[in-house]
């Protein structure tokens, strides 16, 4: 390892007694304070805030209209155009999930089901939202385009059990997604 020796800057007298820098600092902080109080915080416009600071005042003001395309909210399962659940319980998301939030119980599709040829679907699919870190790796790893991070960010509950999303809840959040690659169409 090379040792890089840094030359300390030579300070002149004014810099050495430090007061100039102090006053500059006071001016800077006071500018921000005054602007905040006047409702004109820097960046308040772009961040859609109240102006008193750049913070959004939550229940009254919401992100909903300002969420970017790439926003990663709660993970959810989706169905395709024909209402088929896309998940085939390959358990890759369960495997990749860094905080181990996903738990899948696979099952076979009964032979009288219209989608019996897909053979496999999840019997249970639980995502523990107290564990989920919204990393999106489940979405990335899914070979069936079945799990997506939606824009839902208000995931609350009064009990731990409330925070575990079961299969039904996941499909409620996820809804239907059209125009995806469909491996299980009629040609197959």
């Amino acid at each position: 390892m090379a040792v890089v020796k840094l030359q300390r800057p030579k300070l002149n007298f004014g810099e050495k007694i430090y007061f100039g820098a102090l006053i500059k600092g006071f001016i800077l902080t006071m500018t921000h304070a005054v602007k905040s109080l006047l409702g004109k915080s820097v960046g308040a416009e772009t961040l859609a805030s109240s102006g008193l600071g750049v913070t959004m005042q939550f229940p009254e003001q919401r992100w909903d209209d300002h969420l970017p395309e790439y926003y990663r909210g709660a993970p959810a399962l989706v169905t395709d155009e024909q209402g088929r659940e896309r998940c085939v319980s390959c358990q890759l998301c369960e495997f990749i999930c860094p905080p181990k939030a996903i738990k899948i119980t696979p099952s076979e599709i009964p032979s009288d089901d219209p989608w019996a040829k897909v053979e496999k679907r999840p019997l249970e699919f639980d995502i523990d939202m107290t564990r989920c870190i919204y990393c999106g790796m489940c979405e990335e790893v899914c070979p069936e385009q079945a799990i997506y991070l939606r824009k839902d960010y208000l995931i609350t509950g009064l009990k731990r059990a409330d925070m575990v999303h079961n299969k039904k809840r996941l499909y409620e959040i996820g809804g239907t997604r059209v125009g995806l690659v469909n491996k299980w169409n009629e040609l197959k």
């Binding site: 319980s89 390959c90 358990q91 369960e94 495997f95 696979p106 099952s107 076979e108 053979e119 496999k120």
Partner: peptide, 9 residues
């Protein structure tokens, strides 16, 4: 063993 568990687990 069919559809019980993925082998990598």
């Amino acid at each position: 063993f069919r559809f019980q568990m993925r082998v990598w687990f």
